[in-house]
Amino acid sequence: MLSVYFSAGHPNLKDTATIICSLAKAGADIVEIGMPFSDPVADGPVIQQSSLRALKNGMSVKVLFEQLEDIRQQTQIPIVLMGYLNPVLQYGIDKFCERCKHVGVDGLILPDLPPEIFNQQYRTTFDKYNLCNILLVPPQTSSERILQLDKWSSGFLYIVAASSTTGAKQSFQPYQVEYFKRLENLKLSNPKLIGFGISSRESFDDACNYANGAIIGSAFVKALEANGEITNIVENFIREIKG
């Protein structure tokens, strides 16, 4: 399974629907749409830059929902929104979830919304609108906590491959392989997708050996900056990864 991330509003404000449809056509299995934030602390330089550019282009939660209004008439690929909590809070959690359901978003990844606060304050709202809340699992997590996160997460588990912010890395280190094996042994109920540092066919294949699939972000965001038709760039990129 291949999930691909891009920042809404980057490289151009109105690319959103084109990128989603091109990804679906080229063979991606899930699309993750980044909602830009001025202070993305969990992201490396590539996504920091794309977020900033997107904000300069005029992207916001409101604009994104407008752009997604007709998306379900064009594609049925699963769509996940990913972003930081503050823009969602300011939009209003209830209104946000209602809009997600309305345009056909399937799930959310909000890295700075801790699961404890989610469970206490927002779970009922997410359930009401049938939205998955996808949780992150970093390598230093204890097995006990991983089992908890698996219980609290829905859709899939976002396996953070390295102790790091987002961005391309070298091939897997022994500690990462050990961590992936530990996850396998825990027999988790959610599918696992490995992200952070996946950038090539090699690292994608490697990740698929240990999980149900992988997530590519920074490498795709960078590829989108090249000159040329978005459709072609996306098609070439996915072919490169999936063959």
Partner: peptide
């Protein structure tokens, strides 16, 4: 009120929640 640097507090922000 909003969330920045892992804390919910008073923040200078736009209506869209950008700092």
């Amino acid at each position: 009120p909003g969330v920045l640097h892992s804390s919910l507090t008073m923040l200078m922000q736009t209506a869209d929640g950008q700092i």
